[in-house]
Amino acid sequence: MNAVSADRPEPGQGPVALALRVLLLLAYPVLSHVASLRNEGMWAAAALAGLVLLCLLEPLARLRPWAWTVLLASCALLWWLGGSVWAWMLLLAPPVVFPLLVAWGFARSLLPGQIPLITRIVCALYARAGMPVTVPLERYTRRLSCAWAVVLLMLALINLVLAMSAVPDGLLAAFGIQPWWPVTHEQWSWCANIADWGLIGGFFALEYAVRSQLFPQRPYRNAWDFMRQMGQLGPAFWRDLLR
């Protein structure tokens, strides 16, 4: 009985929870894009409600009363805001806030006495395969962590400029200021919800190709196997990594 309990994943950390997280993460840009194309607040409210659910998934699975209270209150507030321009304006925040938070996580891991995020991931992958992490690889992972911090920071700044330039409900327009380079809801969405993911995916693909040439001896066969092995590191590893 104890062995079975030990192998059982904690609430909010099993494969079903992981699949739900991926589904919610993928659903957000789709719902946000639809909201921008249709200019309807309820679609925006649905996209934001999905983000709230994504952030609260683990405490909800643990049946924490405060998490259910926050979820219900957030959904009620978003439903109320769905009939106004404020629901769409709230969509301007995640493309700025989330890349900025992740960029800060990468940058913070570069401080003295810290281990860079990419270094920790690579060390965990190589340890599972019983392979050593060489000094050149460790140096590369530090530089790569710095590169991701810069890329995500630049992405957040670009999205902030777009959020300020959106019309008629952007940040500047809300204060009666005409943007120097106005963009429509649709143009903002194509950049913030579609192009962002393309840039991140392109940087990842380019970096993986460079890494494959520089370090041919590695514990994964290809990019798909690399992603699969990262998933096998487990929820506890990723939760501790991002703290």
Rank of each mutant, 00 (worst) to 15 (best):
H33I: 08
L56K: 08
V133L: 14
I118C: 03
S74I: 00
A127V: 02
A45Q: 07
L37Y: 10
L100K: 00
I115W: 12
L78W: 10
L111K: 06
A67M: 13
Q114P: 02
L92M: 14
C55T: 10
W86I: 03
L92P: 07
R128Y: 00
P132Q: 15
A61D: 11
L60Q: 11
L54S: 14
G82K: 03
A107T: 00
L71C: 12
L71P: 02
L91N: 14
P65W: 03
A44Y: 04
V85H: 04
W86F: 03
L56N: 09
L72I: 03
A107S: 05
G113D: 13
V135S: 09
W88G: 08
L92V: 09
A67E: 11
L77I: 14
Y126C: 14
G50F: 04
F106L: 05
Y126V: 06
A107L: 06
G83A: 08
L72E: 00
L100N: 02
L51I: 11
I118H: 00
A87D: 02
P94K: 14
W68H: 12
V70H: 05
L125M: 11
S109K: 07
V122A: 09
S74T: 05
C75M: 12
L77C: 14
P112V: 07
A93R: 11
L51V: 13
I115K: 12
P95T: 10
V135I: 04
A129Y: 05
A93S: 15
I118F: 02
N39L: 12
A76T: 12
A44C: 01
P116G: 05
Y126K: 13
Y126I: 07
R62Q: 11
R62T: 01
A107D: 02
E58K: 14
A93N: 13
W68R: 07
V97E: 12
A45E: 09
V102D: 01
S84Y: 01
T69A: 10
C123T: 10
L78T: 04
L57T: 08
V133Y: 05
W79I: 08
L77R: 08
V102M: 02
L100C: 10
I121Q: 10
C123H: 09
A129R: 05
L117M: 01
A87K: 05
T69S: 08
P132Y: 15
W79A: 14
G130A: 01
I121T: 07
T69E: 01
L57W: 12
P136V: 07
N39P: 01
T119S: 05
S74D: 00
P132F: 15
T69H: 02
L101R: 06
P65T: 00
A67S: 15
M42T: 09
A49T: 05
A67D: 13
M42Y: 14
P95N: 11
L72C: 01
P112S: 07
S32D: 03
M131F: 04
S109Y: 08
F98H: 15
L81F: 14
L125C: 11
L53T: 11
I115Q: 12
G83W: 09
C55P: 01
L63D: 04
A46Y: 04
L54R: 15
L92Q: 13
C55D: 09
M131C: 03
L125W: 09
G105P: 03
R128K: 06
L101K: 04
G130T: 01
L71A: 12
P94E: 15
L60F: 12
G50C: 03
W68E: 08
A129M: 04
